[in-house]
Amino acid sequence: MLELQNIDVFYGNIQALHDISITIRQGEIVTLIGANGAGKSTTLMTISGILPPRHGRVIFLNQQISGLMPDRIVQLGISQVPEGRHIFPALTVSENLDLGAFLRRDHAAIADDKAWLYGLFPILEKRRQQPGGTLSGGEQQMLAIARALMARPKLLLLDEPSMGLAPLITKQIFEILLKLNKEHQTTIFLVEQNANLALRIAHRAYVLENGRVVLQGDAAVLRDNPVVQKAYLGM
């Protein structure tokens, strides 16, 4: 479904990604783990078209998307829940959701999706007329996910959704991700520092170190890998 082929990304003269190749198949949950500054967010921003790769290509559904504008990439079916949530603070919860559906014109289906998401995250319905900036961290994370889903993405990119959240909320959010994957066949690319959690829900995983992929494979296999256990699982 998505293929990153030998991607190099630079910030000015500093190279952040070195020859990254990642494949995500339809219906999978794939996770990307790595320490601070490894290049995880950079990878997602490259997929979304915010950062142009200097070398390499990104292919989505047999079409090259590297070089396309971010709005085209959303339209093709990739939505991102960025690190830090990035809720529009002065827009209401409802307006934040509307913006998630910005490129859609099927108004009736948009209303249905909104109702479905309010069902999935009841707290958002209760807060729907409240400015997004006044929500708690967990509520904002739910809103960020719901907003991304308003675009009806084929591929959902998530950047550290567990960051700063209580374990209970994190568990709730991960259960919803699993449900989306199982019941709605949403393919998920999950960036996490919480490797323990990520390796438990993902099918496959990539480990990033200093902008390079150093390990990859089935999540269950990586969980038993002594190197991963020592560096990322704190064992």
Binding site: S48, M69, P70, D71, H86, L99, F102, L103, A151
Partner: peptide, 23 residues
């Protein structure tokens, strides 16, 4: 309006506006 919401979104968080597909 749609474009009005896009204007407010862009003013509040330009990068996120890009990520939801605002030109």
């Amino acid at each position: 309006t749609r474009i009005g919401k896009a204007m407010r979104a862009t003013a509040q968080d330009q990068k996120m506006a890009l990520l939801v597909g605002v030109n």
